[in-house]
Computed example of a mutant assay.
Amino acid sequence: MDDQQLGCAGLLLAMMSLDPSISFDGEHAPVPPAPAPIVPPPKPSAPSVTNPAPVFARRIHRGHPGCHFQEEVMKIALLALALIVLRPCLKKQVWAQSFFAWIDPIELALFKKSETILVGRLLWIGGLFVTFYDAAATFVHSLDLTPLTTRVFD
């Protein structure tokens, strides 16, 4: 090679250490065989009830405190189904009317109590909203936007 630049020799030496087919004398070393292609493992099917995700499966086997999440969701769904669908049907049954006559006043008292708590919390959140709004309005009012507006309108 008739390369007169000094910086190329170092670059060519570095390339020769990485690729044996590069040489100064024009003779090429045999090219090493290509490595066998790596076949990725087959993709598992999407997580489902019968095939849970690996992280969730590890939590179940370790006794992780959050592993009962699906069970709790199922309990809540069944309770909602019972309250929405089955309760009106059961109230019409003669044999269940005495139970509902006994339980309805208790449910009504608990509902009124929860309704009062809910209204109280909504008022509390409303007060927080007004507080944050007042703080934000004070902050925005104190901003000096003159440098920005002079650049925009020039």
Results as ranks from 00 to 15, higher is better:
Asp3His: 10
Gln5Ser: 14
Gln5Pro: 01
Leu6Ile: 05
Gly7Tyr: 06
Cys8Ala: 11
Met15Ile: 05
Ser21Ala: 15
Ser21Arg: 15
Asp25Tyr: 03
His28Phe: 04
Pro30Tyr: 00
Pro30Gln: 09
Val31Met: 11
Pro33Tyr: 02
Pro33Gly: 07
Pro35Trp: 07
Ile38Leu: 13
Ile38Lys: 11
Pro40Val: 05
Pro42Met: 14
Ser45His: 02
Thr50Gly: 05
Asn51Met: 05
Ala53Pro: 04
Val55Asn: 13
Ala57Asn: 10
His64Gly: 03
Pro65Met: 01
Gln70Pro: 06
Gln70Arg: 08
Ala80Ile: 07
Leu83Thr: 07
Leu83Met: 12
Leu83Asn: 10
Ile84Thr: 13
Ile84Glu: 14
Val85Ser: 08
Arg87Gly: 00
Pro88Met: 04
Leu90Asp: 04
Lys91Tyr: 05
Lys92Asn: 06
Trp95Ser: 14
Gln97Ile: 04
Phe99Thr: 05
Ala101Met: 01
Trp102Leu: 14
Pro105Trp: 08
Leu108Asp: 10
Leu108Met: 07
Ala109Asn: 06
Leu110Ala: 14
Phe111Gln: 12
Ser114His: 11
Glu115Thr: 04
Glu115Phe: 09
Glu115Gln: 13
Thr116Trp: 09
Ile117Ala: 13
Ile125Lys: 03
Ile125Trp: 05
Gly126Thr: 04
Gly127Phe: 07
Tyr133Lys: 14
Asp134Leu: 13
Asp134Cys: 09
Leu145Gly: 01
Thr146Cys: 05
Thr149Ala: 07
Phe153Cys: 08
Asp154Tyr: 08
